[in-house]
Amino acid sequence: MSDNSSSNAYWSANLRIIVISLIIWALVSFGFGILLRPMLSGIAVGGSDLGFWFAQQGSILVFLALIFFYAFRMNKLDREHGVEEE
């Protein structure tokens, strides 16, 4: 490939975005929703606590935000590296 260096930079930028997104993904579900729930038990949310809210509502909302963020960010990255679809 002629544009190897550019596509390597594109790929590592993509990997960086994926890793950051997945850290948030794990934090809100496995973290706030399950493992870290005892730490959030002091924060009341309507009859229960913040951990319960993340497990039943919050994590889903964050997942949505992550996917749309990724689509938006990658479309921009495609253009920056000139690899968008013609």
């Binding site: 993904w25 039943q56 994590s59 889903i60 996917i67």
Partner: peptide
């Protein structure tokens, strides 16, 4: 069930 059946879409969309 709630987290598991929605969180998979993040993996699907990103990976």
């Amino acid at each position: 069930f709630l987290m598991g059946w929605t969180g998979g879409y993040v993996l699907l969309a990103l990976m």
